[in-house]
């Protein structure tokens, strides 16, 4: 079930604006974005490319700074990268010089946890993403899907308050992508962690989310916030059900209305 209603707010984004100075003048990457993410929900942001959805994510993650506005995590203002905010990047981001195990235990190691505590955490999350037996391999020895699992396990192992995912499955082939979506839902249901998921893939958003936040262009801001009513746990069969197909069509219409003028 969608678990948005009456829930505690975890993350608040207030009047967030990001401007870039270019030779053609000031470009507004995003304008006046207001957003609430509730505890334990899986919220997807979709929008056409260039609408600034990844910009919002990188500002929440503390990687880039907003021009104005603020971001609050449980009422506390965020000003930079923080272990409370985990990120799964679009690119493969596992440290290539570390094995799967060393990657997964990276966060706990930086926090100074003991070897035995780290081992317990690593074992749990390596198992959760189905990488048991691959602990001692380097990322170069892994497939794309497996590398992504390392990224997810590493982010989870650091026990952040919220996980940001920036089109994490964008580089994967369709089959692997769908499999990863299903596995992500499984992990999410087991771990009860808030996920803020950015994608341009409508089906991905419809399949994963409790709530789809739709962004438009000119101005680059949120145009609609749609709850997703499909029950959980969601299985692969959902993708072909008429109500799912209809919902995808609806999302595409909402996006299409806004982007019509831009093609």
């Amino acid at each position: 079930m969608g678990n948005t209603g009456g829930q505690e707010v975890l993350l608040t984004v207030e009047n967030l604006t990001k401007e870039f100075l270019t030779t053609h003048g000031i470009i507004e990457a995003i304008k006046d974005v207001n957003l609430r993410i509730y505890k334990s929900e899986l919220a997807c942001v979709i929008g056409p490319s260039g609408c600034g959805k990844s910009t919002i994510l990188s500002m929440i993650g503390g990687i880039s700074k907003p021009t104005s506005g603020k971001i609050l995590l449980e009422g506390k203002r965020l000003t930079g990268p923080s272990p409370d905010i985990g990120i799964v990047f679009q690119k493969y981001a596992a440290f290539p010089w570390m094995t799967v195990e060393q990657n997964v235990e990276y966060g706990p190691r930086m926090r100074g946890l003991s070897k035995s505590e780290r081992r317990a955490i690593t074992e749990k999350y390596v198992g959760l993403v189905n990488l048991k037996g691959y602990e001692h391999l380097y990322p170069k020895e892994l497939s794309g899907g497996m590398s992504k699992r390392v990224d997810i396990a590493r982010a989870y192992a650091n026990n952040p308050r919220i996980l940001l995912m920036d089109e994490p499955f964008g580089a994967l082939d369709d089959l692997t992508k769908k499999k990863m979506q299903e596995e992500l839902l499984k992990i999410w249901s087991l771990e009860n962690k808030t996920i803020f998921f950015v994608t341009h893939d409508l089906e991905e958003a419809a399949f994963l989310a409790d709530r789809v936040i739709i962004m438009g262009r000119n101005p680059n801001t949120i145009i609609k916030d749609v709850p997703v009513e499909f029950g959980r746990p969601r299985q692969a069969e959902l993708r072909t059900k008429p109500e799912f197909v209809a919902f995808k069509k609806y999302l595409s219409e909402v996006m299409g209305n806004d982007t019509g003028e831009n093609g």
Partner: peptide, 27 residues
């Protein structure tokens, strides 16, 4: 910069980034 950002978001600071990202990455 991806690796630096990843390290930061996992809680690594100053010298930790130097030791765990900078040094191995330049080898």
């Amino acid at each position: 910069p991806l690796y630096i950002n990843a390290a930061r978001s996992l809680g690594a600071k100053g010298f930790q980034i130097f030791r765990t990202v900078l040094i191995p990455a330049i080898i």
